[in-house]
Amino acid sequence: MDIIVCIKRVPDATEAEIEVSRDGQSIDTEDLTFGISEWDNFAVEEAISIKEEHGGSVTAISIGDEDSEDVLRRALAMGADRAVLVSDAVFEGSDAFATARILHQVVSQHQFDLVLTGAIASDTSAGQVGGMLAAMLDVPQVALATDMSIEGSKAVVQHEVEGGLERVVELELPALVTVQSGINEPRYVSIRGIRKVAGEEIPVIDAGSLGIDVSELGRAGSRVRLNELFISAEGEGAEILEGSTEEVADQLIERMRERGVL
């Protein structure tokens, strides 16, 4: 079972106050920590646990600058066998389509039975690269997996569908599965574990080694362009209670009374 898992390094915005930079083209990342996209972490764990059960190999692939080595090294520490960094200045500004095209070229250079991606990326929240990649690879796919197993030449995948239901489907391998968060409990990565793989070489693939015209990559090859980022008005709807902790607690109880819920 040879598995490829596609991962992305992103700023962690979940518990942070986010500011947009002056030019409106990015967020201020000075005070943010970076790491593997939440969904991708579950995908790495899933890949490694399948390998542990069925044998084979796990190859982690990331597109990004040299800092993305961090998330690849983390995947190695979790148990991936190989990591590949796909990095070139001309990739910058790639939209999801251009990103899927780059991944398609890289993945096609490998033997694989299964490709795993996160269902969405924590930064863009778009949820499209995995499905696009499956279409380009011409393999069956399923989105939002919450459980999966390998049975012979098939992947049996439970995934989220309409109305809070889940559905089980069988995919013929090779296949691509996008992973929903919560599918497993990703293993802990210790600093010692990271140190162990510090010496492992991570090959870098650049645009020259892919069979794509540079005009189809990065900003030039992208049809979705960012105009501006903005943050909608603070507390648009809510009446924000002011005062000490005691005072706001009293006011909240008062509001509950007014609404007849107490």
Partner: peptide, 13 residues
């Protein structure tokens, strides 16, 4: 984007 904390205006060609 970013956990629904930021909105993005994009042009789609």
């Amino acid at each position: 984007m970013y956990s629904s904390k930021v909105q993005a205006r994009v042009t789609v060609d």
